[in-house]
């Protein structure tokens, strides 16, 4: 077991646990905006997780998933926020 494997065994739980923690904010969050913030955080955690997982499996393919996720997450967040803003202006 090399030094890098030890680092990954520390960091992969540290990256996955935040998904559960922000799931708490997604369920409890008093407003819709709080829930969108939690979703946004979860997708950026997903980007970091795919990169770290690629190092763990020694496969560069996981970086493609991270690239696509970084494009998609922006669209999702912006459309939610746009919906929220339009709903109030009308």
């Amino acid at each position: 077991m090399s030094f890098l494997d030890i680092c990954l065994y520390i960091s992969l739980p540290l990256i996955i646990l935040p998904v559960l923690i922000s799931l708490f904010r997604l369920i409890v969050g008093p407003d819709i905006a709080d829930r969108i913030v939690a979703l946004d955080t979860m997708t950026s955690i997903g980007i970091a997780f795919m990169a770290a997982f690629g190092v763990f499996m020694r496969k560069t393919m996981a970086l493609d998933v991270a690239l696509i996720l970084s494009l998609i997450s922006f669209l999702g967040t912006v459309s939610f926020a746009y919906y929220l803003e339009r709903r109030n202006l009308q």
């Binding site: 905006a33 969108i36 913030v37 946004d40 997450s73 922006f74 967040t77 912006v78 939610f80 926020a81 746009y82 929220l84 803003e85 109030n88």
Partner: peptide
């Protein structure tokens, strides 16, 4: 995206 969420 964070600016848009905040303003909304």
């Amino acid at each position: 995206s964070s600016h848009m969420i905040g303003r909304a």
